[in-house]
Design a binder for these strands. Structure first.
Lengths: 139, 139
DNA sequence: CTAACATTGCAATAGCATTGCATCATTATT
DNA sequence: AATAATGATGCAATGCTATTGCAATGTTAG
């Protein structure tokens, strides 16, 4: 188990320290994107800034991506696709549930092609949908 | 001229004070979405908080919408469509230019239909595309 | 004219993101 | 094995944006 996680770090060229193993382990257990605060609370006692930098390192190496879901606090989630530092391929949709306040990645829901006005050159896209998630939705 | 602006406020049920006329006038002169800071600098000397509240009032009444373009600072732009406080119909795409750092509304570029996984109920959508805008794009 | 209400301006605060620096750990070098 | 060099961690401190409380001012209605 631990080996998997360690290997995963190495694959991304990230030095597998104890802290990083713990953080990555914690991240894999989440089914929603989490904030720095969530991470801090879930990993007590740990230094907030170290966690912050750990996430930043992970992001630079293409292991996690951050999500700006419009709530004002940045959320982080593991990349499913093969990303590297230069190119995050997280072109999937993110969903923010206004009921349970959770933010989810919808990795199978891709952003459709969009035809922009002339001479606009897209490089990155970020689509956040707000609404009610499957858990909070009545049958 | 001034009359137009005044009428526009009245149409949205906003008390047309001197400050509000000035702010709306300033907003109509912009071709990009602006931050609170931009507004403050463009309207000196004016109180930042008053401007903040003016924007908030405008938004509640459906005159402007705010854009979270991922830069960390909220931008504001006039609504083109017929919005009211309850329903902002700003389902157009927003474009953030990484070159000139400006954020634009693309009112004619609508967000396409997206099929979500079962039981996810969308209510709002926010699509921000980052890249190079028409002005910064080489011919 | 005065009371009631809306708007404005100042002061203060909260929360998240971020940096500087000192300490500790790990790896490379001789 | 000892030491230098590099990387990781933890603490303190800061910056910036958003936001609220309250007092002062302006505006409207009776």
């Amino acid at each position: 188990m631990k080996k998997d996680i360690e290997q995963r770090l190495k694959n991304k060229n990230i030095n597998p320290t104890a802290m990083r193993l713990l953080v990555l382990d914690f991240l894999t257990q989440q089914n929603a994107a989490i904030s720095l605060n969530d991470l801090e609370k879930g990993m007590e006692p740990s230094d907030r800034i170290t966690l912050y930098r750990t996430l930043k390192t992970f992001e630079e190496k293409g292991l996690v991506h951050h999500i700006d879901d419009g709530t004002g606090t940045t959320k982080y989630a593991l990349c499913l696709e093969e990303c590297d530092g230069d190119h995050h391929h997280d072109l999937h949709v993110h969903f923010y549930c206004t009921s349970c306040k959770e933010t989810f990645c919808l990795p199978n829901t891709k952003i459709p092609e969009i035809s922009l006005p002339k001479k606009f050159r897209p490089e990155e896209m970020n689509l956040v949908i707000k609404g009610i998630c499957d858990h909070c939705s009545p049958d």
